[in-house]
């Protein structure tokens, strides 16, 4: 599954995307728990960037949503367009 990071989250993690393999369906919070095990950059990013939002295949979802291997998951702080 492709995971995209934006804005402050991307800055803290130090890259804009990751690929992870998901054998069974997973909840987004489970994916994040696994990412946090990778290194201190991920832990800092997910602990310090607040009010994160999630999108699966370009649709806003909540952290309880289930994702599968073919999905594109985007994680980002609240948007500031306009």
């Amino acid at each position: 599954m492709k995971i995209l990071y934006f804005a402050k989250l991307k800055q803290y993690i130090g890259k804009n995307s990751d690929f992870i393999e998901i054998k069974d369906n997973k909840r987004i919070y489970e994916v994040i728990d696994e990412l946090k095990k990778r290194n201190k950059n991920y832990r800092k990013a997910f602990n310090e960037v607040t009010n994160l939002q999630y999108a699966v295949n370009c649709e806003y979802v909540n952290i309880e949503e289930t994702v599968k291997d073919k999905d594109e998951l985007a994680i980002f702080p609240p948007v500031t367009g306009g």
Binding site: F76, V79, T80, G81, G82
Partner: peptide, 8 residues
């Protein structure tokens, strides 16, 4: 746009 479009 202020709260939904994916721009930062």
């Amino acid at each position: 746009l202020k709260v939904k479009i994916t721009f930062w």
